[in-house]
């Protein structure tokens, strides 16, 4: 009888557990500078920029908190090159997110880099993991592996704006 009762109630329990409303917020970072210090050699160079996450404040102003984040993904990444340098020097860019307590995650790529542009939009990875955990760290690092076509004595400061979709349970 107890088993029968349980089986009858099971669909209701599943329905109730799945019907909790969730909402998606869009969190956009301020402009972050990813710097590769020159001189830079032909091939792969690392540009990195630290970001002290403001997600907690963002969630607070939206009536939520970090413990209510059920999922997060990078949804857009725009990189701006310095005016003195256009994209002709670059062949590919791969974007990753890193933080001390979480393993590095690859989140975007642009291959090939279109020539003659200073504003670049990356293709975003369809499969993303642990982005919420990275965003919940106080400090995180945006890492761009930039393949350059020829040696340059200059540093490469790339400005980036990144948009995340945050699902709140």
């Amino acid at each position: 009888m107890r088993v029968l009762l349980f089986l009858l109630l099971l669909p209701t329990l599943i329905f109730l557990s799945c019907s909790g409303e969730s909402k998606v917020l869009v969190f956009t970072t301020p402009e972050i500078t990813l710097q590769a210090d020159g001189p830079l050699l032909e091939g792969s160079n690392t540009a990195q920029g630290n970001f002290k996450s403001t997600l907690a404040d963002f969630l607070k102003t939206n009536g939520s908190s970090l413990d209510k984040v059920s999922e997060a993904t990078l949804s857009a990444a725009t990189l701006m090159l310095p005016d003195s340098m256009n994209s002709s020097l670059l062949s590919e860019i791969t974007l990753q997110l890193a933080a001390d307590q979480v393993d590095m995650q690859k989140v975007g790529v642009l291959n090939p880099v279109p020539e003659g542009q200073t504003k670049l939009t990356l293709n975003i990875a369809k499969e993303q993991e642990k982005i919420g955990k990275i965003l919940q760290q106080a400090d995180m690092t945006f890492v761009a592996d930039v393949n350059i076509k020829k040696d340059t004595a200059n540093s490469l400061p790339i400005k980036g704006i990144f948009e995340f979709k945050i699902t709140i349970k």
Binding site: G43, E92, T94, M104, N111, N123, E127, D145
Partner: peptide, 19 residues
């Protein structure tokens, strides 16, 4: 790469050791 969307990442420059 198991993630099809990341198969255009060049091997030269690939970060193969991590964390």
């Amino acid at each position: 790469n198991p993630d099809e969307s990341m198969r255009s990442v060049p091997l030269k420059g690939y970060r193969m050791l991590k964390d």
